[in-house]
Each structure stands twice: as structure tokens, then as C-alpha cells.
Design a protein around this nucleic acid. Structure first.
Length: 292
DNA sequence: GCGTCCAGGTCTACC
DNA sequence: GGTAGACCTGGACGC
């Protein structure tokens, strides 16, 4: 009992570079099978549905672990997959710039630069909060706890990412004791309450008319979101003029471009200035070349 | 086994 | 506008 859906891809799309673009594919409800290059996800909804997404014959094939899925739900899942894989992103201007740099020529060659994202900005926001001031192992652990303790179960037992309402329904204590979120616990509780109560709509950030500086300010009004987190979220809504510097990017930059010596953030910013509004994507691709 | 450090930072108080 | 100190957690590391 499965349902198959498919999507055409643009000519400059590369499934592997998209799903392996950053750590998101390791965070539930995503799971990446690197042997077979199959990306799993559990879509939230009236009933959660597990899916396997893969490339087949130049198309994206989505296998849903359910039959009798309504047309409206199918259409929503197709929209979500387009969003997750960023099939509608136009990176031609970025590729034009990176082709000029010998060390970044691989980006256009591999059609890289599409950063995997979640179906909702809310999910990306919560996950980004889980990346702050901790090891990647702890990030994965917190996200796993959120999904397993608050997400709706699909027929196969896998769980979707929790809704704002589900997250608003538990206490700060729950985040400390069950999610092991530490000092981030009040941030999660406050964020979920605001979103569930309609006082904050992160999804509106996708189509916001605000200049990036103003949008970043709005993102930073969320407790726990500072410069790094806001600029990471900006990348995920398609704005790359912030570098989103964190300890990973700084460390890689020092190794790659500064003889393993520390330097100021300003020096890193100047290094990527030539990429203009694409500088945030340029540094990310530059620092993750070896992944591809 | 224990203590320290630090990782995909941010907040608050203070200057 | 800039900065010091505090903040949860858990794995890595030195002893």
C-alpha cells in the first residue's frame, strides 16, 4: 500500500548535492540512506505520512507509505517536496559568479548550492535553535527528542516534526527534562506559544518584502535567535547576504584560507565580499567542497 | 573515575 | 555600540 508521485526537475538540479548540502538531512524526521541516495521524511498533516524521496530517470520520485491519499494532500506534499529540494530556486547568477573562481568552479559543475530545508520555516527555526552553542551530536539528540516525544506517528511508527500547537502544549520543564534542551527550554516554550497563538508567523518570512536587514531584525526578536541563527534562517528562505558564521565555518575558513590561524569575522566578510548578495552561499559551498 | 573544555551562540547587565 | 560573564548538555580529552 504505497502511493507514488513524481516531479520534474530543472536542468541544473542535482539531487545528491541538494540532500547532502548541510546537516539537515541528518535531523529527524529526515533520514538519508547514503548507499542508495534515498531521502526519507515524515509529512505532518491530519495523519502523518512517511515518504521516501529519490531521483529516478531524471525525475524526483516520492513514494508515500499509504494508499487512498486525497488529491489535495498529494498536491500539498508535491509543493512541500519542491520547497524542501528548492526546485524553483534560480542559481544562475550564483553560478556565473562562482565560475570565475577556480576553487569554486565545482559548484556550477555539480549544480550545488541548493540548501535542503524543511517544509515549514517553523521547523527550520526550531532546528536552528537546536544548533546553537552545542555539539552536532546534541543538536541531533534534541531534534530526535522533539520528534519522538511530540510528533504525530505515521502508520509505520515513524514520526513527523511536532506542530507549533503540540510544542505549545508542553511546559518549559518538559523541554528541560525530556528534550534535554537546557537553557533553550524557555525559548522553545515562548516560540511555540507565539506561533500557535498567531502572534508570530515564520512562514511569512519566505515572501517578505522587508529588506534583509529588517527581516533579520524580526528574526532576532525570537528569543535565542542571534546573528548566526538569523543568518542561517535567511539562507533557508533564500537570502544569502549574511555569512551565518559559526564555529564550524570559522574553523574551516582558518584552515583553508588563513594557515589555520584565527582571524576576525570582518576579515572573513571581506574575503567573500566579491560575491555580493550571494556571499553567504559562497562561503558555505567553499567550506563544504570536500563533502561532494 | 573525575575535572575541564568546548561545540554549527545568545542574553543580560553594564559601561 | 561594545563586551564580560552566565548559561544546559554531553562527548572528548588529559590526568
Amino acid at each position: 500500500m504505497t502511493t507514488r508521485l513524481s516531479l520534474e526537475t530543472p536542468p541544473d538540479f542535482n539531487f545528491k548535492t541538494a540532500v547532502y548540502s548541510h546537516g539537515w538531512s541528518q535531523l529527524l524526521p529526515f533520514a538519508l540512506d547514503l548507499e542508495n541516495w534515498r531521502l526519507s521524511y515524515v509529512f505532518a498533516g491530519e495523519t502523518a505520512v512517511s515518504a521516501v524521496i529519490r531521483e529516478a530517470g531524471g525525475e524526483i520520485e516520492i513514494e508515500l507509505a499509504a494508499d487512498k491519499i486525497e488529491q489535495a494532500r498529494k498536491a500539498k506534499i508535491l509543493r512541500d517536496v519542491r520547497h524542501i529540494l528548492r526546485l524553483d530556486d534560480d542559481l544562475s547568477d550564483f553560478y556565473r559568479l562562482t565560475r570565475k573562481e577556480k576553487r569554486l568552479a565545482w559548484v556550477a559543475g555539480l549544480n550545488g548550492g541548493r540548501l535542503l530545508r524543511s517544509p515549514t520555516v517553523f521547523e527550520d527555526l526550531v532546528k536552528t535553535l537546536c544548533t546553537t552553542n552545542c555539539s552536532w551530536a546534541l543538536t541531533k539528540s534534541m531534534v530526535k527528542n522533539l520528534v519522538e516525544k511530540l510528533g504525530d506517528a505515521a502508520a509505520d511508527g515513524r514520526r513527523a516534526f511536532p506542530t507549533p500547537e503540540a510544542m505549545a502544549g508542553v511546559s518549559e520543564r518538559f523541554y528541560r527534562d525530556e528534550i534535554r534542551a537546557g537553557y533553550r527550554s524557555p525559548y522553545f516554550a515562548e516560540l511555540a506559544e507565539k506561533v500557535a497563538g498567531g502572534k508570530l508567523n515564520p512562514e511569512a518570512w519566505l515572501a517578505s518584502d522587508l529588506p534583509t536587514k529588517e527581516l533579520k531584525k524580526e528574526m532576532k526578536s525570537v528569543k535565542g535567535v542571534g546573528d548566526y541563527a538569523a543568518e542561517n534562517l535567511l539562507k533557508l528562505v533564500g537570502r544569502y547576504d549574511g555569512l551565518a558564521l559559526d564555529s564550524f565555518l570559522r574553523g574551516e575558513f582558518y584552515k583553508r584560507h588563513n594557515n589555520a590561524q584565527a582571524c576576525t569575522d570582518r576579515e572573513i566578510e571581506l574575503f567573500y565580499e566579491k560575491f555580493g548578495d550571494w556571499r553567504g552561499l559562497a562561503i558555505w559551498c567553499d567550506m563544504t567542497e570536500k563533502w561532494h
